[in-house]
Amino acid sequence: MAQVQTNEPARIFNMYKKMLLIRAFEEAAAENFHAGNVRGSVHQYIGEEAIAVGICENLRNDDLLTSYHRGHGHSIAKGADPRAMMLELFGRVGGTSGGKGGSMHIADFSVGMLGANGVIADGCTISVGAAQAIKLLKQDKIIVNFIGDGGINRGPFMEALNWAKVYELPVLFVCENNQIAATTTTKTVTAGDGIEARAKSYGIPAITIDGNDLLLVDRTAARIVDEIRAGSGPQLIQAMTYRLKGHYAHDEALYRNPSEVESALKNEPMPRTETWLKDQGVSIEEIEKAKDEAKKLMANYVSDAHEAPWPDISDAFTDVQDVGSPAEGTNL
């Protein structure tokens, strides 16, 4: 639904609380990764929270969303249950995917979250198809496709841009430009004038904004989501940000200049949002209380995850397919 752009402190404070929840989730995820409780890969969204929250604030529950490997923030922002997500990271019963997907395949279809994705830019093609379904079914939903800056050099991204414009589909591409593709500075491997120029070359309206400015993301999304829902065709937002942690939890990010990180810390979205809230009269106590609550909540989820049962082995053989499904314990 379109938000009334009054930037009322209460609404922003709620969004800030969601950002806190994402940050607490990511910190708990990394902590438990290092403790050996969470296996595989954990790609933290720390430093980018304002984008997911600012965009999703302007979506309806039945709007759709696709994400990439750094998908925890998008899921929480879209309304997925962070407790179920934590259980999923622990590989337990009660996880969003029953422990079959883990961090990189977080999904919650009940809130339109069609999945994080382990393959860069594959969400782009899935999104344009979902948008085609929306059109065919004469629904008034839209789909948001989150992609990182590293993804813009894959063919499926460029194919999907062309496709979305050709059929004037209700897709909002949001490129979260954190400037580093895994460990490589994106600029050094990207020709041309970047993501915004690429989108515009297909005739897709595109805008670059400060993705660490929650109010700006919210305001921009409110306008663009309305336009897309009204039939504008696809649009793209490039949200500039900075990944405060490594590519994944076990990446110490030694490839970057410490001074770069230092200045990024001054620009990160949490204190900026806090400053705004304080200026609006929200007390330090209220803010500290919200921080504590997010941490406590997450501690509870982690303890729930520890206690949740492991999946039964028989679960390994379910939900493969209807026709020709595997018989448990056999190689067929």
Binding site: T96, F109, T318, D319
Partner: peptide
Amino acid sequence: RYMFGGQA
């Protein structure tokens, strides 16, 4: 279908 735990 599998990696999303049967949601899809």
